[in-house]
């Protein structure tokens, strides 16, 4: 009897750990599966440099990635050099969403460090970002040749991530 009692805590904790792993796994899936294989949402916002009003039809060069960034976002500066590299990649177009930011500061930053984007959509209230289910910056979405969202990546975009998650949709 003593033996059964002393194994009881083990059993209880094994169940606990197993269920925690399941919760954790469910959590991850939810974050990624939201908009995958859906159309890019409609929007109507001005461009960062105020030159024109943009809508979904302006994102015309398929496939493309669209990067959510802001001046207050430190990690965005980490991925900035890599975005500059991507700008020179003929297989892909890079668009930006300037998220909850100050227009002047944002333009200033692009002047100083270089502009990797074909254009940036100015989204100070995060309207488009909400439609995309954005949690914060940086986030990057890949829209494939068929116009559907293929990848959502939260956090810095690095060459490793690019290889692992993005390249298979571009060729």
């Amino acid at each position: 009897m003593n033996n059964i009692v002393t194994k009881l805590p083990l059993v209880v904790f094994v169940i606990l750990v197993a269920s925690l792993f399941i919760f954790l796994k469910n959590d991850n899936q939810e974050l990624n599966s939201v908009l995958i294989d859906k159309q890019f949402p409609d929007f109507n916002l001005s461009s960062l440099d105020k030159s024109k009003v943009l809508s979904k039809n302006d994102l015309e060069d398929l496939p493309f990635i669209i990067n959510v960034w802001a001046t207050w976002c430190i990690t965005c500066r980490v991925e900035h050099p890599f975005l500059m590299q991507l700008k020179n990649n003929p297989d892909i177009t890079v668009y930006g969403i300037n998220y909850k930011d100050d227009r002047r500061e944002a333009l200033n930053l692009l002047d100083r460090t270089g502009n990797p984007f074909k254009f940036s959509i100015f989204d100070p209230e995060g309207r488009l970002a909400i439609d995309l289910g954005v949690y914060g910056a940086p986030e990057t979405f890949l829209i494939g040749k068929d116009g559907l969202i293929k990848v959502r990546h939260t956090g810095a975009l690095t060459p490793e991530v690019w290889e692992e998650k993005f390249t298979k949709y571009i060729d």
């Binding site: 033996n3 002393t6 194994k7 805590p9 083990l10 904790f13 094994v14 750990v17 925690l20 792993f21 954790l24």
Partner: peptide, 19 residues
Amino acid sequence: VFLLGIFTYFVIGSLIIFS
């Protein structure tokens, strides 16, 4: 996942030893 791994290792490990 990493933390849960550590948790599993120490708790389940020690409970196996205990049992």
